[in-house]
Write a protein that binds this DNA or RNA. Structure first.
Length: 258
DNA sequence: TAGGCCATCTGGTCCT
DNA sequence: AGGACCAGATGGCCTA
C-alpha cells in the first residue's frame, strides 16, 4: 500500500515537474546518453561473440536495427529491405508529449487490469493477498477462469455436477441427488429459499438439465496453488451473489495502480 | 542480496 | 507529420 502511495506521489511529482518545464528524463536518465546498443553492458556479457546465448536464461537483443539484423536469425530479408533511414530524434517538445501519451496509455492498461480484477470472482482471488494480484497473476487467473466457464458451456462435466451445484446453492453439506420436480433442490425450491430472480431461477434450471460445473472445480485444480475454491463461493459466482469482499476493489489502495 | 514487479523514458515501426 | 503501439533499458521498492 505504502509502496503504491509512494509510486503515485512519484508520478505526481514528475508530472508536476514536467508541467513546470522540467524533463523527468533529466534525472531519470533512462535512455539519456546511454548507448543501449553497446554490448559492454554487464548483462550482455554472457552473449558469446557470435551472439548466441551461452547457458543464460535470457539475453538482451540489440535495439538498433543493424546490430539486431546481424544477430537476430528471425530477421527477414523483407525487414532488411523495408529498413528506412533513421529518422532524426524527436524534438524536446515532441519527446515530452510522446512521454505523456505513453504514460496515459499505460494508465489505460492499468485501468484495464483493474477492470479485469473486478470481474474475477472473489474465490479466484480470495486466498491471495492484494499485493499478489500482479498483472501476470491477473492474466493467469482470468485465463483459467474463462477456460472453466467455457468448459461449463461446452458441457464437459461429470454427471454429479448438478447435485454438486444445487447442494451448494441450498447450503447443504452433502451432495444432492438429481433434482426432480418437487425435489428439495429443484429450481423452484432454490427460488423460494434464495429469493432468486426469474433469470436466476432459469439459470438453476439450466444447471438442472445439463452436466457442467464440476469442470469448474476441475479447472480450479490448476489454480489450487493460487486459490482453492469452496462450493459456496463457486455458487455465489454462478448466482451473481458473490458474498466475499474483494480487498483489491474495496476502496483500499489497489495493488498495481500507478 | 538477488529476483520480481513496476513506472517511466526512449527509439523504432506502423498507421492515418 | 504526428499518434499509437511495442519493446528495451533503467531505477526504485519490496520480499524471501
Amino acid at each position: 500500500m505504502a509502496r503504491m502511495e509512494k509510486l503515485g506521489r512519484e508520478e505526481e511529482e514528475k508530472s508536476v515537474g514536467e508541467a513546470a518545464g522540467e524533463s523527468s528524463s533529466d534525472t531519470a536518465g533512462a535512455g539519456d546518453e546511454v548507448d543501449t546498443n553497446n554490448n559492454n553492458d554487464d548483462r550482455n556479457q554472457n552473449v558469446s561473440p557470435n551472439n548466441k546465448p551461452s547457458n543464460v536464461k535470457y539475453q538482451l537483443r540489440p535495439r538498433a536495427l543493424h546490430p539486431r539484423r546481424r544477430c537476430d536469425s528471425e530477421w527477414s530479408l523483407q525487414d532488411t529491405l523495408r529498413h528506412k533511414a533513421r529518422p532524426p530524434p524527436l524534438s524536446r517538445y515532441r519527446r515530452k508529449t510522446a512521454n505523456a501519451r505513453e504514460r496515459c496509455r499505460m494508465r489505460q492498461v492499468n485501468t484495464a487490469f483493474e477492470s479485469l480484477r473486478g470481474v474475477l470472482p472473489s474465490w479466484v482471488c480470495s486466498r491471495r493477498a492484494a499485493t499478489d494480484m500482479t498483472k501476470i497473476t491477473t492474466l493467469q487467473l482470468a485465463s483459467a477462469y474463462i477456460r472453466s466457464l467455457q468448459d461449463i458451456l461446452d458441457g464437459n462435466a461429470p454427471e454429479d455436477t448438478r447435485s454438486w451445484v444445487l447442494s451448494s446453492i441450498l447450503g447443504e453439506a452433502t451432495p444432492m441427488p438429481d433434482p426432480q420436480p418437487g425435489h428439495p433442490c429443484s429450481p423452484g425450491r432454490a427460488q423460494q429459499i434464495l429469493g432468486l430472480t426469474t433469470s436466476q431461477t432459469d439459470f438453476v434450471s439450466f444447471l438442472c438439465t445439463v452436466p457442467e460445473a464440476q469442470v469448474l472445480q476441475d479447472n480450479m485444480d490448476s489454480l489450487s496453488s493460487l486459490s482453492p475454491m469452496s462450493e459456496t463461493e463457486a455458487v455465489a459466482l454462478l448466482m451473481g451473489t458473490d458474498p466475499q469482499p474483494r480487498p483489491w476493489l474495496d476502496g483500499q489502495q489497489p495493488p498495481l495502480v500507478s
